[in-house]
């Protein structure tokens, strides 16, 4: 009888159930799948550290041991671009279009500098040191992992540039701020995963063979 007492004639009010927009959920899931992808490549890299049966070994060719500042310099350019893009989004939220354009362009330039740095490093390794995919396990792992990261940076730069052009044409406003924000989430992921790649390739992977 206690149940009958609690019965009511009309149902409780039905509330809207969404906390996150589909776009945000989608980009989070996409980043999760990217992490699974990079996680696999990173596991493979860690698995093969120190298993080369012929040189050149990482400590002979990686710039971090020859010229540590150069790689650090590049990485810092990529990492600070995350800060610039955060400034850009903040400016867009406040409706300051000019500041948005400035910080967004700075992000693109910093990302491009990182790619140029990677290109110079690869040129040195391929042409001067003669290390390529088929040289040894280090070559296979290095170009795959760093290459896929650079590929993601390139894709990110294309999208960033597209957004900048759209903004210059006047298509970016506070109405579609979420879409621009989601692009910046992807850029933060590309930067964040570089920290992991950097530690794996240039720190853990750089120890002399036992």
């Amino acid at each position: 009888m206690s149940r009958a007492a609690t019965m009511s004639a009309s149902p409780p009010e039905a509330l809207s159930q969404q906390s996150l927009s589909p776009g945000k959920i989608g980009i989070i899931c996409m980043i999760a799948s990217e992490i699974a992808f990079f996680g696999t490549l990173i596991c493979v890299y860690l698995f093969y550290i120190g298993r080369d049966i012929n040189g050149p070994y990482p400590q002979d060719v990686l710039e971090v041991s020859v010229a540590p500042l150069k790689v650090l310099f590049n990485s810092i350019f990529l990492l600070v671009s995350s800060v610039w893009i955060w400034f850009a989004i903040r400016a867009l939220r406040k409706g300051r279009k000019g500041a948005f354009m400035f910080w967004w362009a700075l992000t693109v330039l910093c990302g491009a500098e990182f790619l140029v740095g990677t290109g110079i490093e690869w040129y040195g390794m391929i042409v001067d040191d003669g290390v390529w995919m088929g040289t040894n396990l280090f070559g296979s792992c290095f170009y795959t992992l760093v290459g896929f990261h650079a590929f993601h940076v390139t894709m990110g730069l294309l999208v960033l540039t597209l957004v900048w052009i759209l903004a210059a044409l006047g298509h970016v406003s506070s109405a579609n701020i979420e879409k621009v924000d989601l692009v910046s989430w992807y850029w933060h992921f590309v930067d964040g995963i570089w920290i992991v790649v950097f530690f794996v390739v240039y720190i853990f992977g750089n120890t002399p063979v036992q």
């Binding site: 039905a14 159930q17 969404q18 589909p22 945000k24 899931c29 799948s33």
Partner: peptide
């Protein structure tokens, strides 16, 4: 993978009123 992402975004973000 793309369709999987799409489904998750749909289920978590587009349920009708009252559907917890």
């Amino acid at each position: 993978t793309a369709t999987g992402i799409n489904m998750i975004a749909t289920i978590l973000g587009m349920r009708c009123r009252g559907m917890s």
